[in-house]
Design a protein around this nucleic acid. Structure first.
Lengths: 230, 230
DNA sequence: ATTGAGCTAATACGATGTATCGCAAGGGTA
DNA sequence: TACCCTTGCGATACATCGTATTAGCTCAAT
């Protein structure tokens, strides 16, 4: 019985870790959206069966948690912000950029607590930028208000982006000219104010719209952080 | 062969309509969340098989669209608002109330265009409350900014509410005392700003937190709608 | 050499969204 | 009254999913 006769031992399975699992899941989600992420497909990318993953995660939801935290790393600013306004603005814009790179992020944003290591780091960096400017409760409210704004704004942006992609029409055109139902509804005269906005409104690009609303909110925060001189 | 011998003809199926379908779906979602809504279960509530529904909807997503629009009806204000601020505040609070009644709304909010009949009516009512206060683009930005805020805020509120229900702990306690991981992380000293907030922050109730942030945003809107006297 | 422990893969199960198909009832026509 | 045909419904079927269970295999310790 020489070596030649004996078969090679079965290939030891490539060792796995959460990092590789999450990377595979993120890749799948980037390509096909969240619904393209199945434990079977993630496993397949790693030459593993679906059950193999259960050594690293207890449930599919946990995989989503890990994916979110992975993206938080992209949001973490490279260097501390100059002032509080820049800190909050950066947080908002970096989150938006991450969502444009990973559209599925919009589906998860605000839908689960983000308390992974990177999520905590992002929170820390943000809060550090506001430290000492007001009592903790005011600071907290400021962060929450800004976060609520950009969470909602990003979701809407991605939602319309998907709708445009699905119909091949810009939001404006789609409401105005083409959406046959929309046109018909507006023509009934039951929605005068809406009709006016759809008709006369400018089709402003998403980024400036996001930035403008953000500036408004930041102004509001400013008014509370540094109360006007008495 | 008398009547008595002949069996009754097979019961004609109860006629269906979208209204009944949506009502069944909403009831299921209210009880068990969005994931409890399956075409089979909806059908079962109406003594119908799953395929029966495909005469009324083309896809499960469309059922969600109908569900959303159904809830928009609850959001539509009974009477026109007194001024623009009341209009926007009402929209926000009524949406929040709807989400507290139907928690699954938080999962859908901002995730799909809400252009059903009721959605349009809500949009109309809101825009009507702002009519003539500024150029259409500014009005649009105002509505979008406020909407983004309350979308995000509601999502966060429901998310934490669920987390509390799952762990049996209030957000505050849970971060501070009990969440063993959180405690450990904060103890590392790597998150000083965060630790301070968690430690010293007051556990303010959700409604006032929501209302406060909303007021800030409304102030910001006010500053743009009625520019300060030159 | 044997046993025990720890992973892994395989199998299995119930649920889901939806395509397909056959059928049966009702209405129109001869 | 007999036939057909159209409409819509139910049943069946299929691929996919998350996950529980089971059985096997490899290595370390005895």
């Amino acid at each position: 019985m020489t070596v030649w006769d004996r078969p090679e031992p079965p290939a030891r399975p490539v060792p796995l870790d959460r990092e590789r699992i999450v990377a595979a899941a993120v890749a799948l989600a980037d390509e096909g959206g969240l619904e393209a992420v199945s434990l079977r497909k993630v496993g397949a990318r790693l030459n593993a069966g679906p059950m193999r993953l259960y050594g690293y995660i207890a449930t599919k939801e946990e995989l989503f948690d890990l994916m979110m935290d992975e993206v938080q790393a992209e949001i973490l600013p490279a260097e501390p912000a100059g002032d509080w306004r820049e800190a909050l603005r950066n947080l908002a814009h970096r989150t938006r950029q991450a969502a444009l790179r990973h559209e599925w992020l919009a589906d998860l944003l605000g839908g689960r607590p983000a308390f992974g290591p990177n999520g905590l780091a992002v929170a820390e960096a943000t809060l550090a930028g506001l430290d000492g400017l007001a009592d903790v409760d005011t600071v907290m409210r400021a962060v929450e208000t800004v976060s609520a704004y950009f969470t909602g704004a990003i979701r809407r942006e991605i939602t319309y982006l998907r709708a445009e992609r699905a119909t091949g029409l810009s939001k404006h055109d789609w409401q105005r000219a083409s959406g046959p139902r929309m046109t018909r509804m507006l023509a009934t005269g039951r929605f005068p104010a809406l009709a006016k906005v759809v008709h006369d409104g400018t089709d402003v690009d998403a980024e400036t719209s996001f930035a403008t609303g953000l500036d408004w909110v930041l102004d509001a925060v400013a008014a509370r952080l540094t109360p006007p001189p008495a």
